[in-house]
């Protein structure tokens, strides 16, 4: 196991932390779950990027890239069984109640696309996915249906943004590559230059939502802090939605400066939900995960740039210091 002891990371606070053991446990759990996933492999292929597997077991269909779980979906009800963090991809509605165009970078098993198509039928979702094989798997095994309201582009996400002239009300990021020791963020999708590109493709009240695998104080807190700090260098406001059931933090960057108070959010959430534009049953409950304050280590983390983005070092080793 390559994880170093706690408290030695590039941008961790100098005080002793207690997150290391918990993080290690999470990592071990992740590997055990990933490797030892019980069930029948219903499909397997190797693309230029991953070994892709679809496994059915205990009523749940799971998509795996190499050893990591990307998507879960209940076989009985495809609208159930997904990872919790997917539901935070609906939080942009709080800042952009007129949302009608969404761009999603990273398809996976299409959980977000499926939920948006069902619960927000008024929204057109464009998806950019780099791996053509993933599209095939999503269509065949996860019910992803491309069409005029669900367009799919097989291209690198950053390339797409750079060449696109469209504007989106929300841009959702869930792009990961897999390494032997877990998921890694593609370095060209976390830099200040990248977020500047994202900002330029948003409408005036647009929101970016970024799924970061990690936690606020323990496992991979460095990468969460660094992404937060980097987003803050581009967006006026950055908020957090830490998932309760998994090691994910969804970071939201907004262009409008609405006061992030609890009454405001509850009020706005109720309005949006009652308007019928968002029918996600858990929408109102998910608002409670909101955090306005930055991760405790954010000020110690580097702003990631195209010129300097040691994300592999932040995620794995900490020989520095």
């Amino acid at each position: 196991m390559m994880r170093p002891a706690a408290g030695t990371s590039l941008c961790s606070p100098p005080l002793p932390r207690h997150g290391g053991r918990q993080g290690l446990a999470a990592l071990v759990l992740g590997l055990v779950v990933g490797v030892g996933l019980r069930g029948d492999t219903v499909f397997e292929t190797t693309s230029a990027y991953h070994r892709i597997r679809v496994v059915d077991g205990a009523g749940v269909r799971t998509l795996l890239f190499d050893r990591a779980e990307e998507t879960r979906m209940s076989l009985a009800n495809p609208l159930e069984g997904h990872f919790e963090y997917i539901e935070y991809f609906f939080m942009p509605w709080l800042w952009n109640p007129e949302l009608n165009r969404v761009l999603m970078i990273g398809l996976g098993g299409g959980s977000a696309q499926r939920l948006y198509a069902h619960y927000c039928p008024g929204v057109a979702v464009d998806t950019v996915e780099v791996d053509a094989a993933v599209r095939q798997v999503a269509e065949t095994y996860f019910g992803y249906k491309p069409g005029p309201r669900q367009r799919i582009f097989i291209e690198d996400g950053r390339q797409f943004l750079r060449r696109s002239q469209d504007r989106y009300g929300a841009i959702l990021l869930d792009a990961y590559t897999q390494g032997r020791y877990g998921a890694a963020i593609p370095h060209h999708l976390v830099t200040r230059e990248f977020f500047t590109l994202v900002r330029d493709r948003l409408t005036t009240n647009g929101v970016v939502a970024y799924n970061v695998m990690g936690s606020l104080t323990g496992w991979r807190a460095d990468i969460v802090g660094a992404v937060h700090r980097t987003m803050q260098s581009v967006f006026p406001q950055v908020y957090l939605f830490p998932a309760g059931e998994s090691q994910n933090v969804v970071l939201l960057g907004t262009l409008v400066a609405d006061p992030p108070t609890l009454p405001w959010r509850s009020q706005r959430g109720r309005e949006v939900f009652e308007s019928g534009r968002v029918k996600l049953p858990t929408f109102y409950r998910r608002i409670n995960a909101f955090r306005a304050e930055p991760p405790p280590n954010a000020s110690l983390c580097p702003v990631l740039t195209d010129d300097y983005a040691p994300v592999d070092g932040l995620l794995s080793d900490t020989w520095r210091r």
Binding site: Y49, V130, R158, P186, L189, T191, E193
Partner: peptide, 12 residues
């Protein structure tokens, strides 16, 4: 390769 990824994306 790292440098080119900034321009051409992280493709294979």
């Amino acid at each position: 390769a790292r440098y080119l990824a900034g321009e051409f994306g992280g493709t294979f």
